[in-house]
């Protein structure tokens, strides 16, 4: 991301609670791109986003939004940021129009036409009370507000969590439309990684409060792969060969962060499949190795390997 203007730069961010610590978190979001922040529940995604918005005070580290130190210019930065919290809160007893009327006064760049257009395209009933809306419509309302003041940077914390597939698709379509201007950047945290496979340009993976990687999505999908093979092969390999391994009764499934090198090294002895972001989260979190490989039956694995012409003694 060198040489690209960043709307967000985080360097060495640390935040400690009792029982949890965000440690040395660093990543940046380039202008006009979508950064997906992924990781299991409790990994530190919300803490990171709240710290960017100034809702939490970092213990150490530096956050720069639009090149400004967030600790000193938080108010100025927030004027250019749109946010969608995981549980959007507005006045329940007021209508959407009344809530919007309150929020608009805080933004000099508020565009009423844009709000009306977004509300219409999201199908938001502006005369209805906020408290009567479904979870999906609440998120859409928060998004409409976030986008109606011409935000250059939109921060969304688990916006699709709890939404049904239709709502999720609508929301992602809206975001895709938004990105057409190539000016707005999005930081999108989620544990539903399939959403990010559709819209993200970059992915940052957080595990146990630490950044595992922060790279272009295509790079992950090209380089990282699932490897399937027999247990005897696995036993011959050094322990650090893979990023995570699931052992079955007769075979193993593992994640590699260098598909090419693995292919060159193990050749036809294994099957190498495309890894999804879900696989990456699962294996790097350690959840996979702690799991029993229930669904990967010996025959299936053996058949897979055999069909590829590899060793079938798994």
């Amino acid at each position: 991301m060198d040489g690209v203007e960043n709307v967000l730069e985080i360097r060495g961010l640390c935040k400690r609670y009792s029982g949890f610590a965000l440690t040395n978190v660093s990543f940046s979001v380039p202008r006009g791109y979508v950064m997906g922040l992924i990781g299991p529940n409790g990994a530190g995604k919300t803490t990171t986003l709240k710290t960017i918005l100034g809702l939490l005070q970092p213990d150490f580290g530096e956050i720069r939004t639009f090149g400004l130190d967030a600790a000193l210019h938080g108010k100025k930065a927030r004027a250019r940021i749109g946010f969608v919290h995981d549980d959007p809160r507005f006045y329940d007893h007021l209508s959407l129009a009344q809530n919007a009327h309150i929020v608009r006064r805080f933004y000099r760049t508020w565009d009423p036409e844009s709000f009306q257009r977004l509300a219409k395209s999201f199908g938001l009933p502006l005369e209805k009370r906020f408290g009567t809306l479904s979870r999906g419509n609440k998120t859409k309302f928060a998004l409409a507000l976030a986008l109606s003041h011409r935000a250059e940077f939109v921060i969304m914390d688990e916006p699709t969590s709890g939404l049904d597939p239709v709502f999720r698709r609508d929301l992602l379509d809206s975001l895709t439309d938004l990105l057409q201007d190539e000016r707005t950047s999005i930081l999108f945290s989620t544990h539903i990684t399939s959403d990010l496979e559709r819209i993200a340009d970059y992915i940052t993976l957080i595990q146990h409060g630490r950044v595992v990687f922060s790279v272009a999505k295509d790079e992950i999908l090209e380089r990282w792969a699932l490897v399937k093979g027999g247990l005897d092969l696995l036993d011959q390999l050094p322990a650090d060969t893979f990023r995570g391994v699931r052992r079955g009764e007769h075979g193993f499934e593992a994640l590699t962060d260098d598909a090419e090198a693995t292919r060159a090294r193990l050749g036809d002895a294994v099957i190498i499949d495309r890894a999804s972001l879900d696989d990456v989260v699962l294996y790097t979190s350690g959840a996979a190795s702690a799991d029993e490989m229930v669904n990967v039956g010996a025959s299936t694995l053996a058949d897979d390997v055999g069909a590829e012409g590899g060793r079938t003694d798994a």
Binding site: L53, G54, L55, K75, K76, R78, A79, F83, H85, R89, F90, V103, F106, Y107
Partner: peptide
């Protein structure tokens, strides 16, 4: 948290 997220 809503108010604290606004430009104030």
């Amino acid at each position: 948290t809503l108010w604290a997220s606004l430009p104030v």
